[in-house]
Design a protein around this nucleic acid. Structure first.
Lengths: 230, 230
DNA sequence: CCAAAAGTGTTCAGTTTACACCCATGA
DNA sequence: TCATGGGTGTAAACTGAACACTTTTGG
């Protein structure tokens, strides 16, 4: 055994991180997509933001970097969780690349220059993304990320990382309905959520509506906490 | 960008897999430990079974190999789940090694030659292990693995992968009590578990007891299925 | 005054918890 | 016959699901 392990013949793996960055825009769950252009296998194909883990970097740090560099998101606005590692031998046709996949959540607007739908490859509603073939195994990663997001919404206060600072109970419920793909009773939802004491009313109302304005709320704590939400 | 990515200078990471192998022996949750002997940093220190991921191998395959080679366990007897990837830059003092950690469960006896407690480093009750300093970040990995096991016991039929083919409801309840670290009411537990129709009585009784013998049960399905167990 | 969406309570069913005694067996 | 641990039921509290009308606002 060599004294320094990185001198050995076992130095084969390229380690990457891929991240499914979600946000909430105009009543839709949107995902950050990048154009992948790695001929001959991938030319102008959409994919998740990803990049190699650097020698002096943890995978978590790689993802925080990716979120800023490729997502245009302020790091402190962005919540990041590790999902799973994908190590299929042929997942990258150019060679052996093992990828640590992450879920990231950021409130909209993630950056002032981000536009939807002018540049449709940047942020897309999740339903549209699933109809496309993404680069590498990113369809699989995205499916797993969405499943994880559903679980996390169910059992934690993670919705606070996706919604803006002030939101209505309608927004919150719509998010749950879209991600969990089922209708949720309005009265039961409000009763349940308010009984958890994780939201505070801001005493302000939504403006610019054509009907009765809704009360705005915020999460009491910025931290993601365990709570049985439904 | 080189044509083949593994030719590039980015080939820095050594990828390893570490596995927390649990079994159930004599009313205790036991963990498989190996002696780690990697001077100068680790000399005769206990640690989890681990090894490098080979170039033509997924991390899952590495773990299946480790379970057989280092755990003395028949692969088909062993249930394996990926936990999390640990990528701290200094987690291995000899160089950059990123480790994909796994949880593995196998019924006892895992191999005819495995002995407890004659060779105390091989299998140890979980409580004793936590009092020791393990090699690398294996204390952290083991703590996370145990937390994951608790979650999985709570929401799936994974207990069937830890217990022998025939077990009593007392055994099953004791497993839950030990892992979840709280007492569970006997009557409520039996009522709940039997109502799920995931167990079948074998029509046999436990033998060699000094009191009334208990009915033996088995899981109806060998597969791990979702079920709200408590 | 009309259209649109917000806000609000009750009932019922199912699930979870708390709790104590008798029974079968081996020594 | 005694010590050990297995097996069993009921009542109360809580939780989740179903369900419709009134209020507030802008146009």
């Amino acid at each position: 055994m060599p004294k320094n392990i990185s001198d050995s013949h076992l130095k084969f793996a390229v380690l990457a991180a891929d991240v499914a960055i979600f946000s909430w825009y105009d009543g839709e769950l949107v995902v950050r997509l990048m154009e992948v252009d790695r001929p001959p296998h991938f030319t102008h194909v959409p994919g998740l933001p990803g990049g190699l883990v650097r020698p002096k970097e943890t995978a978590d740090e790689t993802v925080r970097r990716l979120v800023v560099e490729k997502g245009g998101i302020e790091a402190r606005e962005c919540h990041v969780e590790q999902l799973k590692t994908y190590s299929a031998v042929d997942r990258d046709p150019r060679g052996r690349v093992v990828s640590v996949a992450y879920l990231a959540l950021a409130p909209w607007p993630v950056a002032p220059f981000d536009k939807l739908p002018e540049n449709p490859v940047e942020w897309q509603p999740i339903e549209k993304v699933f109809k496309q073939k993404l680069a590498y195994d990113h369809n699989t990663i995205l499916r797993d990320a969405l499943a994880s997001l559903g679980e996390r919404l169910r059992y934690t206060t993670i919705a606070g990382k996706l919604l803006p600072n002030a939101f209505t109970l309608f927004d919150l419920r719509l998010l749950y309905e879209k991600v969990l793909k089922r209708p949720i009773d309005k009265r039961n939802f409000i009763k349940k959520i308010l009984s958890l004491n994780i939201l505070k009313p801001l005493g302000r109302k939504e403006t610019g509506r054509k009907a009765r304005p809704a009360e705005l709320y915020a999460f009491v704590s910025k931290k993601v906490e365990l709570a049985s939400m439904l």
